[in-house]
């Protein structure tokens, strides 16, 4: 490609999305940081800014109390830890469920593949809220599962399935499974089948060939899919709110309740900042991984 100086049009094409994201993505995050250092107040907006101006001179007075509060009240630490645990279990289950499916799509006759892939993508386009809602009807005390089990006499009393932690894990697995299957499929599709043939020719059993060739070579897909389930799972709000119970602590729900329930914007901002710090490592890892593929 010839080296050409970027002309006016190309500059504008770059600048417009740049300015938008600067204004509506970068700047808001900075404001969250600022508000997290401010003090709660009764009023509109319900906080006092951490910087006061006297005679045009800014006097910063950051209030670290919100962060101290996050450390003091064990609720927050528990919520962070339980969000990580729930998201990690969900990621593992999604991997165990998604890997055979992705593998089967790769092995399926070529004519089936567009349909199989469309069927994986289809639920991702279907309303997220409605897909979570569907599980309430299935898991409720008078829901489908309990009705079937009661009618067939397997159980005498309805099981408590809804408003539990396993229900939240199930909801995350169900909602994010397509994000696990697609990167796994992409990784497995690239795998050179002659490697497996060579292994078989040399006397390697299929199980050993899978463990020593297929699995290591699909590792980038496993990591990408895992992060695509884990990262949004940690901050999930809708799923724990609809499928979880009072004892299911998730940080996304805690943030929501601080903001809408307690109207405590500074603490909500501190929770958001801490969550951002927590997720920055996996997010950067994911971006490196995707950057490397291009």
């Amino acid at each position: 490609m010839k080296a050409r100086r970027a002309d006016g049009f190309v500059r504008i094409a770059t600048a417009v999305p740049y300015v938008w994201l600067g204004l509506f993505l970068l700047l808001p995050f900075l404001i969250v940081l600022v508000v997290s250092l401010s003090t709660k107040e009764i009023g509109t907006p319900p906080f006092a800014p951490p910087v006061t101006f006297s005679g045009g001179v800014p006097r910063p007075a950051p209030d670290l109390g919100n962060y101290a509060y996050l450390f003091d009240d064990p609720l927050y630490a528990l919520a962070y830890l339980s969000s990580i645990r729930v998201a990690a279990i969900a990621t593992l289950v999604a991997l165990l469920l998604g890997y055979p499916v992705a593998y089967a799509i790769v092995r399926a006759p070529a004519a089936w593949r567009p349909l199989l892939l469309t069927l994986v993508i289809l639920p991702f386009w279907t309303s997220f809220l409605i897909r979570v809602y569907a599980w309430i009807g299935i898991l409720a005390p008078n829901g489908l599962v309990n009705n079937v089990l009661l009618a067939t006499g397997v159980i005498a009393e309805p099981l408590v399935l809804l408003s539990t932690e396993p229900a939240v894990i199930l909801g995350i697995v169900y909602s994010y499974l397509p994000f696990m299957i697609l990167p796994l499929y992409a990784a497995l599709e690239r795998l050179d089948p002659t490697l497996l043939e060579a292994a078989a020719d040399l006397g390697c059993r299929p199980a050993a060939a899978f463990l020593r060739i297929t699995l290591p070579l699909s590792l980038p897909g496993i990591v990408a899919g895992g992060l695509l389930v884990f990262v949004p799972g940690v901050g999930e709000f809708v799923i724990p709110d609809l499928l979880g119970g009072a004892d299911t602590l998730m940080i996304g729900k805690v943030l929501w309740d601080e903001f809408f329930g307690n109207t405590d914007w500074p603490v909500a901002s501190a929770v958001a900042t801490a969550l951002l710090v927590l997720l920055i490592v996996p997010v950067l890892w994911l971006q490196r991984l995707q950057g490397g593929q291009r």
Binding site: P28, I31, V32, V231, P232, S269, A272, L276, V283
Partner: peptide
């Protein structure tokens, strides 16, 4: 693409 929506929502409201 990956940021929890609660964070983006809170950030935009504060903006």
């Amino acid at each position: 693409l990956v940021m929890p929506e609660v964070i983006l929502g809170l950030a935009l409201l504060l903006l």
